[in-house]
Simulated scan of single mutants.
Amino acid sequence: MCIAVFLWQSHPLYPFLLFLNRDEYLNRATEALRWWQDGETLGGRDLVGGGTWLGCNRHGRIAFLTNFRETSSIPDAKSRGDLPLRYLQSQKSPAEFAEEIEKEASLYNGFNLVVAHVFSKSMFYVTNRPLRGSMSFPTPTSTLLGPRLRDGFNQLLTQHPGGEFPVKTMVEEVMTDTVKDQEPDLPHVFPPDTEYHLSSIFVDVPRPAGRYGTRSISALTIKSHGQVCFYERHLEPGGGSWKELTQHFVIQNQTST
């Protein structure tokens, strides 16, 4: 599971602002934030499936993914982490890519996928577990994934209405929250005790297959002139110490899709 909150095309300085926690088993092999071998793609890497949960590239493409909490899974399902990577390394528009993924969505376990291109101001949300209607559609100008984040995120936005965001402060105040939901607010997919421990924004819980929790906290900001800041705080393999990494670059070919 992951949890994310983002702002899209509704701030005078930041066309895009994202905070995302990746929750995973602590013993799952993972590569920290870095430029991939193609020299164009930036993000962490899941070394088991080979894909990513969040990435961007030098030409203004963004993709991120969250999973559904489900009691059953598809045998031999395709890796969901491949979806963001495919978009980042493609030449398709967000709408074209969303249409392509709809045709093969049944091959994956449950996912929420957001793909965007900053300078064409195009963003699409794709899911293979729709509540109603289509599996893909354009997002509103301001969208939140993970409603428990809304109050804290909006409070910090109010404190910084038009200027620079203190990214590390926002990460610390919003994304490390360990407050848990009470039983009436749980989704009632897993047993209540399991869901209780998984209900906080920041997760850390022992499970039968090993310790499970928030492996990384990411903040991705893009300013109106194309300056990108990608910050990651990640837990070293096996649950060691926390490390910080930051990458800065300016988007190229700003009129491309």
Results as ranks from 00 to 15, higher is better:
H11G: 01
P15F: 05
L17C: 12
L18I: 11
L20S: 11
Y25I: 03
E31C: 03
G43R: 11
G43K: 08
L54I: 04
L54C: 08
G60M: 04
L65F: 11
R69M: 09
E70I: 00
S72G: 05
D76G: 05
R80V: 01
G81D: 02
L83Q: 00
L85F: 12
S93K: 04
P94D: 03
E102M: 07
K103M: 10
E104N: 07
N109A: 05
F111Y: 13
A116C: 04
F119H: 10
M123H: 05
F124L: 06
V126W: 14
P130H: 07
M135K: 13
T143E: 07
L145W: 06
L149D: 09
R150D: 08
H160N: 14
G162T: 06
G163N: 05
D177L: 11
E183W: 14
P184C: 06
P192H: 13
S199Y: 00
F202T: 03
P206R: 12
P208E: 05
A209F: 12
G210N: 07
R211Y: 10
T214H: 14
I217D: 08
T221G: 10
I222M: 09
H225L: 04
Q227D: 12
R233W: 02
G238F: 11
G240D: 03
S241K: 13
W242V: 01
F249W: 15
Q252M: 06
Q254F: 03
Q254W: 06
